[in-house]
Design a protein around this nucleic acid. Sequence first.
RNA 1: UCCUCCUUAGCUCAGUUGGUUAGAGCAUCUGACUGUUAAUCAGAGGGUCGUUGGUUCAAGUCCAACAGGGGGAGCCA
Length: 519
Amino acid sequence: MGKIIDRTLPEYERMVTKMLPDPLADFTTHSPSVSLRFIMFNQRIKVSELLKLDPNGQSVTVMGWVRTFRNNQFIALNDGSTNTNIQVVVELGKFDDALLKRITTSASLKVTGVIEPSLGKGQKMDLKATAIEILGDSDAEKYPLQPKKHSLEFLREKAHLRFRTNTFGAVFRVRHALAFAVHKFFNEKGFVYMHTPIITASDAEGAGEMFRVTTLPMDGTAPKNEDGSINHKEDFFGRSTNLTVSGQLEGELGATAFGEIYTFGPTFRAENSNTARHLAEFWMIEPEMAFCDLEDNMNLAEEFIQYIIRYAMENNREDLEFLATRLEEEEKQLPQDKRSELGLIEKLEFVLNNQFERITYTEAIDILRESNHNKKKKFQYEITGWGMDLQSEHERYLVEKHFKKPVILSNYPAAIKAFYMRQNEDGKTVAAMDILAPGIGEIVGGSQREERLDRLTARMKEMQIPEEELWWYLDTRRFGTVPHAGFGLGFERMVQFVTGMSNIRDVIAFPRTPGSAEF
RNA sequence: UCCUCCUUAGCUCAGUUGGUUAGAGCAUCUGACUGUUAAUCAGAGGGUCGUUGGUUCAAGUCCAACAGGGGGAGCCA
């Protein structure tokens, strides 16, 4: 990042000295890499950058939205760059009463003035206004958000305005940082960012119920086959199509040419899932690596998760601290035993500084069977033994009670996993791995892929997956097949983990869930 | 989809074993004050009690269905 700025520095300096008085131009030379990129094309300075200045009479222009207007004298102005507001001071008698009346919650303002050390206690500097322009009025009687605490449920109904609150400001800046870090990580590792299709024809993957994509009429007049089913030969694509449930299969095609690829895009599941960790439309990251086995896969996943968390910790500390405080306040209302043992920041630091626990499925079953929890018959679902699918209460026990850190579970029974996972030599398990995170559950699911054509087709036959539909997928095993592996990470679950938000609907801008597609 | 809880003013909530005109805090509006920090002080306006139906002399309160929402579960990321 620094290098790009350096290259254009002289140009920026000319701009800055032209439009800003000397003191500020002087400041820009102290740390050019952070400040210059925020002197905007429209000559405003972002509040986040403004607050870094030593106030001594510099003249600046800020633009933002009113959070509160106290005492007919102090405007808390927020421009979305940080949760900290700039306090605009309106000196008595300098402005029309008619203008001051229009400074209401969420009105948008352009304010020019000089910054001075604040006389008040709550902030470092004041912006003494010399000119105030109302860019957009906000009718206080109609604006739904008040300068007070609102419930997350209420704000979900006002999703179009909730970005203007501190909580959602922080959440979505952190979301941005994590998304940026995803690309940064893979770019630094030489992965190719691959855009796999949103509309797909294959329905063989079995990752979940799919949304159908069609241009045929829905009023019953669509062309039919002799058996009464819809004839998709006359549909837009000449076949039946759906929204993608995963880019993995296409990703494997990329990996077996570029070596390493990743996808980062929207994914759709038409499951009727009504939980705090499911969405019908969510964003998934799916790296796929050739010449890579299960252990390499686990190593990459762990390094990746730590990398993007570290990036957010280093670049969005203030927002994370705000979210940590928010979470602490929220948990004060819970009984002692329901509260988190670690604060949000401590939890993230813990994840950065400790290796994830790695155990096999078989070891996990043993731990669960031997646990006091099981002996006291406290599991709702009984530990029936090897071969059973783990319920979320079992996963939660392992992660939150037994190990108290993220756990990578590997080598699951073949019977409970997908067809493309590599069959182990024991004849009963596959080289699969899941990463379980405290509070969220499964955050990553991945595997080494079955690269041996005969084994793969045999498994497909067992699971009644027609080979014809996946001829292109099987070609990778026919022409220069290689050991390869990959995983999928649900981006919103990652954002939940980092921000501490307990409902997934609060970490995506406009959540799509069963029965709900507002905005 | 299943279990469970909830729905009263713009928001958060109170409302007794069913019984006159349904309350509070905050927000909003009006006024006062002017170095405030979710400012403060005084006053005002604001409600078909989620919808529909039922029980009853009488329903915010009891019953049923439906709708919306929360929490948990399944499916998963």
